[in-house]
Design a binder for these strands. Structure first.
Lengths: 331, 331
DNA sequence: ACCTCCTGGGAGATCGATTTCCCATACCCT
DNA sequence: AGGGTATGGGAAATCGATCTCCCAGGAGGT
């Protein structure tokens, strides 16, 4: 068997208590010589703390977790990387779980993580309506923070971007470049961020703003939107896509059909994932202040109490201007 | 506080042992009436098993883990999804960790997971040389299987694709289409898969095969390769890219320079990630038999002993033919 | 009527580390 | 020299669930 703390204590000729003080780093006061002896014994035996035992006793694990709807979405990967950097900076570890875009699976993953694997959990809910229950149940056990999206009745704080402000920035940007006939390309939204973007667009433009609504958020749906757009081309000189994959499908379709981007139609996207930059033309998009959001989310998890309040914190978006919106060639 | 097992037992009027038999589902023989009583008591108290305690006692957690070099690589995400499907089919949960392409971070993640969070671990090693030590140490605690790549001296089994066969398939495919002047685009490889692909290419073509070697595996490096290729264009009519991102950078550069793909130069890639399909032209590539590999890896983890043998298992690759290799227009 | 066998279920040990007391020793001061 | 105060370190309780005995009682056989 592997060595236990008793073995280390025995070899060092001290009690389990003293050995624990040295190993766990709570050496409020242990004679330097004993510290040395315990450390040597531990090294000699190749001792490794049994984390299950420690977790049982202390109730903490030293790790955080994050559950995202799907790892196939590069934006969620960026988000994980930001959280991961933050957690690592504190000497911790972040474990990730993929909900496969399915609320049932999401519920199971949340349950598993919250139950003895992590001290706190970040959740990007799959849907506004169906993810709340699992989050609420988990929040009774560990602090939970919703991230990017939020779910109703989850009873926890949510750290998101200000989607209204983002839509306004895009509209102002396009208008500043002389575009007036602006359309929105969005999906029937089950996520809070999608719903907020659509609502913001309606609020700002009312009847003047056209909307192309799709059944899903995929490149394919974006291509479909492209085909529809070509038909209503006379009425549109700019498009706001509510997600990056939609924009990708849309732009490639327009390119092939000979509709010039941005000369005929300006295009903007969300999420600022890496592909947008290498597309032709590179896409103007909204970037989430992920580092600031990650800082805040982790701070809330540490605060614990602060996380147990149903409330949405919104961070200011950034606009990343690239060729697809036609800056530099106003008309 | 939350309810403990002893509370459930008390409310149901049975001993802890009986309650445990019912809850843990080891009811070798408990009277149906008692089962009912315990279950009702548990429901009433909202009882949830303390997984740390269970893990301490039983030494198992019911979850598996996977550590990948980087989630930003879509191929690794596909790989995770295959593993995840497999684990979920058995009613388990898969937790993921991102090593940020850094052996030190990788070592910490492996250590954390193996220590009380998972029953077994899949690792895609960051490097051939530097990842072995951490894997070996972890393998002393839990069964570990290397996946896709392997690291020297790790002392565990590795489940990978047969890279030699893959390179052969590509070369045969290109030759069958009349291409004779084939070049390899690869990076200075620190990963086993990269090294194997380069070696296989040399084995097959010897001096006849040109090689463009780059410092890193990025889209940017691919663009650089494109520029070099344009200079040596007379000597090359087909390119085998050892990674998908290299192919992406290469093709976009060739496109812009007016070099026709596949008419002037045929291009093939690896990993068959989703982007390859939407590129213009869509890219021929090698697809990993991920589902079969995932099945095998999880089976090895269950087998335990089978995983503790240093050995490489290679799975047969599949060739996915698309427009970029010029099939249908042999010359 | 008595013995054996089987089954259900309880008492208590156990997993391994942490942490709360509490005692012993040494030091300091008057 | 005697009493008071730090300070180091040990014994034992504790976290919560599981699992190994082992016993009681009922069924079945002769």
């Amino acid at each position: 068997m592997t060595a236990r703390l008793v073995d280390v204590a025995q070899l060092a000729g001290v009690s389990r208590a003293t050995a624990s003080r040295v190993i766990a780093g709570t050496p409020r006061n242990v004679a330097p010589e004993l510290v040395e002896r315990v450390e040597r014994a531990a090294r000699e035996l190749g001792y490794r703390t049994n984390q299950s035992a420690r977790a049982l006793r202390t109730g903490t694990t030293g790790t955080f977790g994050v559950v995202v709807p799907s790892l196939a979405n590069p934006y969620f990967v960026q988000l994980i990387e930001a959280l991961s950097r933050r957690v690592r900076a504190d000497g911790g570890v972040l474990v990730v779980s993929d909900a496969a875009n399915t609320p049932d699976i999401e519920a199971r993953e949340i349950d598993t993580l919250v139950n003895g694997k992590v001290d706190g959990l970040i959740v990007v809910p799959v849907t506004t309506a169906e993810s709340g229950a699992a989050i609420k149940a988990a929040a009774a056990i560990r602090p939970i923070v919703q991230f990017d999206r939020w779910s109703e009745g989850a009873g926890t704080v949510a750290v998101t971007m200000d989607n209204h402000a983002a839509i306004s920035m895009l509209i102002d940007h396009l208008r500043g470049l002389g575009r007036e006939k602006i359309a929105l390309v969005a999906a029937e939204q089950s996520s809070s961020s999608g719903a907020e973007r659509s609502a913001a667009f309606r609020d700002r433009l009312g009847e003047a703003g056209r909307a192309i609504v799709l059944p899903s958020i995929t490149t394919d749906a974006g291509r479909k939107a492209g085909r529809r757009l070509i038909r209503m081309r006379a009425d549109v000189d700019a498009v706001v896509c509510a997600a990056d994959v939609l924009a990708i499908g849309l732009v490639t379709t327009l390119n092939r059909a000979g509709v010039a981007v941005p000369d005929d139609v300006a295009v903007t996207a969300f999420d600022d994932t890496a592909i947008l930059e290498v597309l032709d033309p590179p896409l103007t998009s909204i970037r989430h202040p992920l580092d600031a959001m990650a800082d805040r989310a982790i701070a809330l998890l540490h605060g614990d109490a602060a996380a147990r309040e149903e409330r949405v914190e919104r961070f200011a978006p950034e606009l990343v201007v690239r060729a697809s919106s036609g800056a530099g060639r106003e008309r």
